[in-house]
Amino acid sequence: MQQITAGIDAGGSLIKIVYQEKGRMHFKKFSINKLDSAISWLKTVAPSLKVSLAGGKAMAIQNKYFQDSILIPEFQATCDGARFLLAKENISIEENYLIVNIGTGTSWHVVNGDKAERILGSGMGGGTFTGLGSLLTQVQDYQLLTILAEEGNKGKVDMLVKDIYETAASPINGELTAANFAKGKKLNHTEADRLASLSNMIAETIVLLTSQAAAIHHVKSVVIIGTSIIGNPSLKRGLEFYLNMLGLSTVFLEKGEYCGAIGAYLSV
């Protein structure tokens, strides 16, 4: 029986699996609450496995399911996976660059050639969108929340620069946010508007931290990965708009949510 190699990235919300069979790389993800089902599925499709693990729950999975597996530091796996995808997509970044991994929270890494260093972390991320979004609305499902955010108007909840200047000439773009959720006491906004405001606040916060990190480390290119931008056009559009406005080149990697699992796979 042919042995199949698999990389598993087990984070706070999702378990992501990458394996190769007959020369083709396969990708699969499950809610972390369905861990038993995920492992059962993997063992069914690949009875003979060699496994490498990354992520916060990697050791727990190793102890329970794969005692002979290899543990890879999460940040190393993430950056190795991002490099692999950049090469696969024929994207060349000559100078140093940032990797911004937006998962449950967000991590920043600066990449210099073969070296990568985690430089920053924030609790602002997909977990914020799901958790706070469910408090602001009657919706619990992440995908439904993203759909609502896309339909909403942040200007009905956020105070914009143009709201302050009104008829006067604004020194900056009037559509920019002056204060997040500052119109929250007003009643003429919907659940969708509140989610649009939330998505915008998360994007703005991540961009502000990214711009500061870019200035400190003298980089002009940002590679954005992570599960929280998948199927979330409102967040992705906000990130791209603000980063480009600040003069930072932005790359969104296809399959970027699997960087950790890919990096684990590559280490076997």
Rank of each mutant, 00 (worst) to 15 (best):
T128D: 04
A261K: 07
L195F: 00
I32H: 02
E74A: 10
T146N: 13
N200W: 12
F84Y: 06
N180E: 10
I70G: 01
G55W: 00
M59S: 14
Y65E: 13
T167C: 12
L209G: 10
Y258G: 03
E204Q: 05
S37G: 13
I70D: 03
Q212Y: 13
T44A: 10
D36E: 14
V45H: 15
F252R: 00
F241P: 02
I70N: 01
S37L: 15
I202G: 02
A87C: 12
L160T: 06
V51W: 00
D141W: 01
G260M: 08
D9A: 05
H109T: 08
A203K: 06
I15K: 02
H26F: 14
L86E: 02
I61P: 00
G133E: 09
V207K: 06
L208W: 12
S267V: 08
H217Y: 15
S197C: 14
F252A: 06
T130H: 04
A6Q: 00
A168T: 12
V45Q: 14
G155P: 03
V51S: 00
V18K: 09
A168M: 14
L243T: 10
S37E: 15
G12I: 02
A58F: 09
K57I: 04
T130Q: 05
I164G: 09
T137Y: 05
F181N: 03
G152L: 03
A182Y: 09
N90M: 14
G121F: 06
C259R: 10
Q140C: 13
A213R: 04
D114R: 14
Q143I: 05
S228W: 07
T146P: 01
E74R: 03
V222Y: 08
F30L: 01
I224S: 02
Q20F: 09
E150P: 08
I72S: 08
L235S: 04
I229Y: 06
L135I: 01
K154M: 10
S52M: 03
K88A: 15
D163I: 05
I99C: 06
G7N: 07
Q62I: 01
D114Q: 10
L86I: 07
T205H: 11
G12W: 04
T128R: 10
S69P: 13
G256M: 04
G105E: 01
L49T: 07
P171T: 08
